[in-house]
């Protein structure tokens, strides 16, 4: 084995041609209001978990929308389902239902948690 001193970097690009974008439809079936999300971040700003951990609900929702599931299930476990996010949403998105159903959809997709 040759010693190179470096590895070929992996692309960071979100590739919409290969990502599983259809999984989002399964969330929409259960929470149609998710479509309306503008990614304003009010939910994250008011989030109790966000104040103490890196949990970012807006970003979790976006990553799922983009078909990026790595580490998502673990992130969602940080939510305490208090529902404050739902109160502040300007577009009436049922954020709490998104969290609840994302867990189910991710589990249905048989998306394995990444073992560290």
């Amino acid at each position: 084995m040759k010693h190179w001193g470096f590895k070929i970097s992996k692309p960071r690009v979100l590739d919409f041609d290969t990502a599983n974008l259809d999984a989002y439809n399964r969330l929409i079936e259960k929470v149609p209001s998710a479509h309306r999300c503008l990614m304003c971040g009010a939910c994250t700003a008011t989030c109790t978990a966000n104040l103490h951990t890196e949990f970012n609900f807006r970003n979790c929702h976006l990553m799922f929308r983009r078909g990026q599931f790595d580490g998502l299930a673990e992130e969602l476990d940080k939510c305490m389902l208090c529902g404050k996010c739902k109160l502040v949403c300007p577009r009436g998105v049922n954020t709490r239902a998104i969290i609840y159903n994302l867990r189910i959809v991710l589990s249905d997709l048989n998306y394995k948690k990444i073992e560290s």
């Binding site: 190179w4 001193g5 470096f6 590895k7 070929i8 970097s9 992996k10 692309p11």
Partner: peptide, 14 residues
């Protein structure tokens, strides 16, 4: 910088 060469080769690969 040797440690950065992975970026360089990744672009060529692309």
């Amino acid at each position: 910088v040797m440690a950065n060469r992975g970026y360089s080769v990744a672009n060529t690969k692309k």
